[in-house]
Amino acid sequence: MTTAWQFYFITLLTYSGVNIIAAWALNLQYGLGGILNFAFIIFQAVGAYAAAVLTLGPAGGITTFQTYVGGAHLPWLLALVVATLAGGVLALLVGLVALRPKRTDYQGMVLLTVAIIAAVVVTDEKGWLNGASGLVGVPKPFNESLGLGLIEYGWFYVGVVAVAVVLVFIVIHLLTSSPWCRQVRAMREDPVAAEALGLNVPARRLQVFVIGGAIAAFSGALLVGYIGSWSPGAWGPGETFLLFVCIVVGGLGNNFGAAVGSVLVLTVLFNGLAYLPIFSYTTAAEALQLVLLGLIVIAFLWFKPRGLFPERRRRFAFPSAGPDRGTAVAVEEAR
């Protein structure tokens, strides 16, 4: 394989991993929790910015050409943890305000507004995160200690992302197969009835929102480690829309579906074409992609509203005869 093609696959795989993680987080919030998080991308962004400034070092050193707050030289893993927590904290603050309306569509409108305001503020306040130009020169995780060539390092980072995907999957799987998630789905279906059964719906929504926000930030931190730069152009409200398309196509409420949807929509349709090393990607091609995307959304909403892999029906086994083998735990029906 030529270097260009290797680089192409490294990029695709890294982006895929990041997008799968993000799609799982949004699926938890919207597919399972019913929260219309139209501000999703700002949580990925806060993770990316946090990981960037925490590894770039104090502003004004070698990077006098960019200004930002909170610069530090943290080890990457620590920066990753702090970035993830930052996403959770931001989600808590935003959620306390945006999730106040009882109706989820109102919540969605507030969240969209938050996303737009955040983009404007970060762009205009150049002292915070270097405004529209964004941050560049973010150190590559472990790069100095490894001393690998560009391509070798790329494959190494694919491995890092793969480990991250597995870790997030474990967390997501534990959460979504639990009684906790059953109550989350109940809240999605009918928050008023859930409340009548003794469920603290606002608190539960906030939990879902914070967990999703933290995972989104984690994905952002992984992403910035690969691309090395981050600016408002990377996190417009349209990016959130793309992730919604992923989970609608893949199947709301289904983790496997969310992963497949993000690979089909973002990896194949978007990045797959955008980074292809054999022809130059033009604005016309980009416009065509968007048209295609719109058609896909309409087609799915029309013909397959539950997506390729709909939420699974959970069945409960009957206790078997043996005295110690009673297993009435939900088995997901494969469909």
């Binding site: 059953r182 789905r185 109940a186 279906e189 008023v192 409420g253």
Partner: peptide
């Protein structure tokens, strides 16, 4: 006010 996309026993 049944939970529409939960099974009966899940409800």
């Amino acid at each position: 006010s049944e939970f529409a996309r939960l099974t009966v026993i899940e409800n």
